[in-house]
Design a protein around this nucleic acid. Structure first.
Length: 347
DNA sequence: CCCATTTGACCCGT
DNA sequence: ACGGGTCAAATGGG
C-alpha cells in the first residue's frame, strides 16, 4: 500500500490539474460551473489528504522534500540580498516571500487583477531579461506612515499571458488589511489612500464573498526552510474549497489582521499587452482583472513555522468564520498540515 | 496642489 | 559588464 500511494497521489494530482485546466476554460460568469469544479477539486484534495495520512501511518519518518519537485519553483531562496543592514539592498533572509499565480480575466471591467486588500504604491518597473513582460515593483502605501516594509512584484507570465505572477515580499506591519473581509477593492484605483480603507469596510461585504471563495481555490502553499533548503508544502487554500462552499459564511464575523498577507491578487493596473505597458491606464485597453474565478497557485517561502502559522492564519482570515488554531489545523478541514511534505514528491 | 505613476538613472550583487 | 532592484525627477490626473 505504502508503495502504491505515491503513484496514486500522482494520478490524483494529474486529474486535479486537468480539472484546473478545465476551470480556466469555464465561463467566469458561470458560478455554478465554478462551484462544481471547486467541489471536484476539494474532493481531490481530500483524497490526497487521506492518502497522505495513510502514508504517514506507514512511515515513521518523513522524507525530505525537494524544491525541484515543484518544477522551477518561484521561490526566491533568499540567497540574495534583501533587508540586510548596511547596504541599500537588504537580504531577504527571514522575509516571507511568496509567489501567487493570478489568472486575469479579460472580460473584467476593472483594472488589473484582483486586489489583495492592501494599498500598494508602484515605485518601479523593469524589463526583465528573457521575459516578455516587464516586472512592476510595489511597496505598501503605508511604508512611510507606518513603516510597513511589505512589497510585491507583479509580472505577467510568459507562458500564459492571462496569468500574473505576484510575488509578495515581507509582511505587512500596517493596519491596512480591511479588505481581507471582501477580497476586493472597488474597481477604482487607490481609493483607500487615506484613512485606512474605512470606505471599503463599509462598502464591501457580500458582493465579493463568492469571488473571494473562488479566488482562493486550487491554491497550494509551499514553505521553504532556508537552513536546509527543505521545502514543506501545505494545501492551504484547499481548505477554502471545503469551507467556502457556503459563501454565506464568508462575509460574516471576520476580523482584520495585522502583519499578514492575503492570498487574493492585486488591484494594481497591469498592462494587458506589451504595447500597453507604458500606458496601463489607456482608455479602452483590455483591462484584466475582475476575475471571479481566478485560479491561483500559491507558493511560499518562509523560514520558520511561526511565519507559516502566521501566514496561514492570514490566508484563512478572509474566509474562515472563526477558527484557525495554532496546530495548523483548521476546524472542519480535513487537512493534515504535513500533507504536502509527501505531496511534493509527486511533482 | 497633492499624490500616484512613469521612466531613466543609479546602485548593488554576481 | 550585466541584470535586477530602487530611487527620484518629471508627468499627469483629480
Amino acid at each position: 500500500m505504502d508503495q502504491k500511494v505515491p503513484g496514486l497521489v500522482k494520478e490524483i494530482i494529474q486529474a486535479r490539474e486537468l480539472v484546473m485546466e478545465l476551470q480556466t476554460q469555464l465561463n467566469p460568469s458561470s458560478v455554478s460551473g465554478n462551484v462544481l469544479v471547486t467541489k471536484i477539486l476539494s474532493i481531490f484534495e481530500t483524497s490526497l489528504s487521506i492518502l497522505n495520512q495513510i502514508k504517514l501511518e506507514n512511515e515513521s519518518t518523513t522524507p525530505n522534500s525537494s524544491m525541484s519537485h515543484f518544477g522551477g519553483s518561484l521561490f526566491s531562496n533568499c540567497g540574495s540580498d534583501f533587508f540586510q543592514g548596511g547596504s541599500r539592498k537588504r537580504c531577504r533572509k527571514g522575509i516571507v516571500t511568496w509567489t501567487q499565480h493570478v489568472r486575469a480575466c479579460e472580460q473584467g471591467g476593472y483594472e488589473g487583477p484582483l486586489d489583495d486588500g492592501y494599498g500598494w504604491r508602484k515605485y518601479g518597473q523593469k524589463k526583465i531579461f528573457g521575459a516578455t513582460y516587464p516586472r512592476a515593483y510595489y511597496k505598501c502605501s503605508y511604508q512611510s506612515t507606518q513603516n510597513c516594509l511589505a512589497m510585491k512584484q507583479v509580472q505577467r507570465s510568459d507562458l500564459n499571458s492571462s496569468m500574473f505572477n505576484v510575488t509578495y515580499i515581507g509582511k505587512h506591519s500596517c493596519s491596512e488589511p480591511a479588505e481581507l473581509l471582501s477580497g476586493r477593492y472597488s474597481p477604482n484605483k487607490q481609493e483607500h489612500i487615506h484613512g485606512h480603507s474605512r470606505i471599503y469596510q463599509e462598502q464591501r461585504v457580500d458582493k465579493s464573498s463568492e469571488e473571494t471563495y473562488m479566488n482562493f481555490q486550487n491554491s497550494t502553499v509551499q514553505i521553504a526552510k532556508h537552513k536546509d533548503i527543505q521545502l514543506e508544502s501545505y494545501p492551504s487554500f484547499s481548505i477554502y474549497s471545503t469551507i467556502s462552499l457556503q459563501p454565506a459564511n464568508i462575509s460574516s464575523g471576520l476580523k482584520t489582521r495585522e502583519n499578514h498577507f492575503t492570498s487574493t491578487s492585486t488591484k494594481m493596473q497591469i498592462p494587458p499587452t506589451p504595447a500597453c505597458i507604458s500606458t496601463p491606464t489607456t482608455p479602452g485597453s483590455n483591462h484584466f482583472g475582475g476575475c471571479r474565478n481566478g485560479e491561483e497557485l500559491l507558493q511560499t517561502t518562509i523560514d520558520s513555522i511561526e511565519e507559516l502559522d502566521q501566514m496561514v492564519t492570514s490566508l484563512l482570515a478572509p474566509i474562515a468564520t472563526s477558527s484557525v488554531n495554532n496546530d495548523h489545523l483548521v476546524d472542519g478541514s480535513p487537512w493534515d498540515w504535513d500533507f504536502l511534505e509527501d505531496y511534493s514528491h509527486s511533482y
